[in-house]
Nucleic acid binder design. Structure first.
Ligand code: MN
Ligand code: MN
Length: 325
DNA sequence: GTCCCTA
DNA sequence: TAGGGACAACGCCCG
DNA sequence: CGGGCG
């Protein structure tokens, strides 16, 4: 019995899917081909989040329950229509990362074993100026969904206070992400400082349930992970399927729906129908890029009041003004 | 998942 | 030609 | 050297 292959047509191209019947989600029974068909069905929405941006590949070649590895450098053998862009690292090393433009690219990376999409917050034509600030809400173990949702609503108020509009989504795991479309006028360190100022403001508004502290030992409730805005960090983007038993999706939400939804409502099975019947709640994200001026003013105020930079993650060189790590 | 080498 | 092995990120700070 | 953290 030769190994079966399936040719999938997407965006006017034919993409070969090897081992289409391989079970990627044993519990739910979804195959690799199911995953490809999912992404083709929600391609416009998924590409609004991941398209046009360099991305890291997180590969689960043995399915969601298997080991994974990251791959930054695009495979040498790739279709000529697949775009890449060269990223540079502080070490001087470089990587040609994949940039998705259409559903065919989506299908092609799923064939590699990618389950979720992990784009950088920049567009391929300007790798130094993010157009997205990411508010990453990470609950510490044991925190209920109701509290995560409450912190999200506080974050919405804090964003509104500095003239910004957030676009919320379930992370597909336990948390919430709020993406903020911004003008491409600030560098990575500036966007990170803006995210830190927002995290501190949310903690000040809701000190019982929110924390901006990097050290796990000092955290409580929901941690606002400002470091996820450092250069070279990626976040699973909208409509990404996550490697959970039930194939959960990172689902864009309308703010008014947040009180009524649970993360488990959104899966590889349920989302395509929601998408075709109710449309994409994140469709307007590109309409009005915002300014970080007010949030950076808040950061400057924090600095004057004795709250300067906060710790950076491992693998980053010590920054000027950074407290002990 | 794919490539490359070897038995 | 079947099968095994290699390979697929970022790479610093602190005590 | 192990442990920090996504
Ligand atoms: Mn998170
Ligand atoms: Mn995080």
């Amino acid at each position: 019995m030769p190994k079966r292959e399936e040719i999938v047509e997407a965006a006017g191209r034919e993409v070969t899917i090897t081992n289409p019947d391989k079970v990627f989600f044993p519990d739910a029974g979804h195959t690799k081909l199911d995953l490809v068909r999912y992404y083709v069905a929600v391609a416009d929405g998924a590409l609004r989040g991941a398209g046009g941006r360099p991305m890291a590949l997180k590969r689960f070649v043995n399915g969601a329950e298997g080991e994974f590895f990251f791959q930054k450098r695009a495979p040498e053998n790739r279709p000529e229509w697949l775009r890449t862009v060269e990223l540079s690292f502080p070490s001087g090393r470089t990587a040609d990362e994949i940039v998705l433009d259409d559903a065919a690219g989506l299908a092609w990376i799923v064939n590699l074993g990618c389950i979720d999409l992990n784009p950088h917050p920049v567009r391929a034509d300007d790798l130094d100026h993010p157009d997205e600030l990411r508010v990453d809400l990470d609950p510490v173990p044991g925190i209920p969904w109701s509290q995560i949702r409450d912190v999200a609503m506080v974050a919405r108020e804090a964003l509104e206070a500095v003239g910004l509009v957030g676009w919320p989504k379930t992370s597909g795991s336990r948390g919430i992400h709020i993406n903020v479309r911004i003008e491409r006028r600030w560098t990575y360190p500036e966007v990170r400082r803006a995210a830190l100022a927002l995290a501190r403001d949310v903690e000040a508004r809701a000190p019982e349930i929110a924390s901006s502290k990097w050290w796990k030992e000092e955290r409580h409730g929901v941690f606002l992970d400002y470091n996820q805005n450092a250069k070279d960090r990626t976040v699973a983007s909208v409509y990404s399927v996550r490697p959970t038993k039930d194939a959960r999706v990172s689902m864009p939400l309308r703010w008014e729906d947040i009180p009524d939804v649970e993360p488990e409502d959104f899966t590889l099975v349920t989302v395509p129908d929601l998408y075709s019947e109710r449309g994409d709640p994140g469709a307007g994200i590109d309409d009005a890029p915002g300014s970080l001026d007010a949030l950076l003013d808040l950061s400057a105020r924090h600095e004057r009041e004795g709250q300067g930079d906060a710790p950076w993650p491992p693998t980053y060189a010590k920054q000027p003004g950074e407290p002990p790590r």
